[in-house]
């Protein structure tokens, strides 16, 4: 058994995306209910969400971008840049609260109050670029966590593993020339899926060449190809990198029941990758692992996938 933290706050539901939008508050409602019904809540250490200081968000995003998100929320502009990015007046505060909660989670893990943690947050983050909201994302949660680990906890080697079915274009862009942050993403091939980046030829740049790795999967592919690529592309590279902290962009939208992609992963396969990541943290980062929710839009299967994921973090 490990001590595992949970970041969840009802205020994460306040970011509203309008009718028929896949990134809806109900995602967190069903996740939380699933954890409750599975008897997990008593086993998890609750981590509070407090608003992030702007200086941390601005480690990744331009003040102009932060201002734009705030302005678009407060003026109730409806969307930011694209109908993908729906806003309600509470969106900015919710996004700031999510980042703040994640930074609290970093502190909990680094202080040893928990060994690992799951952050059930909205809005998601991995598409957000320094100057742009994209693909339901406003602030890049995982990237801000990594910058915070570097600045506040003086961590030299951070490993980010992104198994959302879409490429984390924002995270890659932010760290592509940073040799201290290893970014691995496995996703549906960009010729067939949003956002159109993340080919296997993108490997980082300058001093960061080699610490960005992308694996792509073709529409229709499933567990076998996923496991093969993880074993070939991720495991040896991260073994070599030896992360001191592992961050996860946990997206559950590659599941066969989720219609956001053509990838067909089984429930069991998500448990498999969860266990692989826990094993990496066990070996290299003194169990320090923070898993942050990204995508996953099938409300029927999402609670089960997250419950299994959290169960693996707990080491049940």
């Amino acid at each position: 058994m490990r001590t595992t933290g949970l970041l969840y706050d009802e205020r994460f539901l306040l970011h509203k995306t309008g009718p028929d939008h896949p990134e809806c508050p109900d995602r967190l409602v069903v996740i939380y209910r699933g954890l409750d019904e599975g008897g997990f809540l008593q086993k998890l250490i609750r981590i509070p969400a407090t608003p992030a200081k702007m200086k941390w968000i601005e480690k990744v995003h331009s003040p102009r971008h932060v201002f734009r998100v705030e302005e678009a929320s407060l003026l109730d502009m409806g969307e930011l840049g694209s109908p993908d990015n729906q806003l309600s007046p509470e969106t900015f505060d919710t996004a700031v609260l999510a980042v703040g909660g994640i930074l609290n989670t970093v502190d909990y893990v680094m202080e040893g109050r928990v060994e690992n943690a799951f952050c059930a947050v909205r809005p998601p983050g991995h598409h957000a670029e320094p100057n742009k909201a994209l693909g339901f994302c406003y602030f890049n949660n995982v990237a801000i966590a990594a910058r915070y680990l570097q600045a506040e906890w003086k961590i030299d080697r951070i490993g980010i593993i992104d198994f959302d079915v879409h490429h984390g274009n924002g995270t890659q862009l932010i760290f592509e020339s940073d040799p201290g942050v290893f970014y691995y993403s496995i996703h549906e091939h960009p010729s067939f899926a949003y956002p159109g980046t993340g080919t296997e030829f993108e490997k980082g740049s300058g001093p960061g060449f080699g610490t960005t790795i992308n694996s792509t999967m073709l529409p229709g592919e499933g567990d076998e190809e996923f496991k093969r690529k993880i074993k070939k592309d991720l495991l040896p590279a991260i073994e070599h990198f030896r992360p001191e902290v592992v961050l996860v962009s946990a997206g559950f939208d590659g599941h066969v029941d989720d219609d956001m992609s053509g990838i067909r992963l089984s429930t069991q396969c998500f448990s498999w990758i969860g266990q692989k990541i826990v094993d990496i943290a066990e070996r290299h980062s003194n169990r320090r692992l923070i898993s942050i929710l990204e995508g996953g839009y099938c409300l029927k299967i999402l609670p089960e996938l997250v419950r299994n994921h959290v169960g693996i973090l707990l080491g049940e």
């Binding site: 896949p22 109908p83 219609d259 839009y297």
Partner: peptide, 9 residues
């Protein structure tokens, strides 16, 4: 220019 193709499909 969207990530939300499921709905369009």
């Amino acid at each position: 220019l969207t990530s939300n193709v499921a709905r369009v499909k």
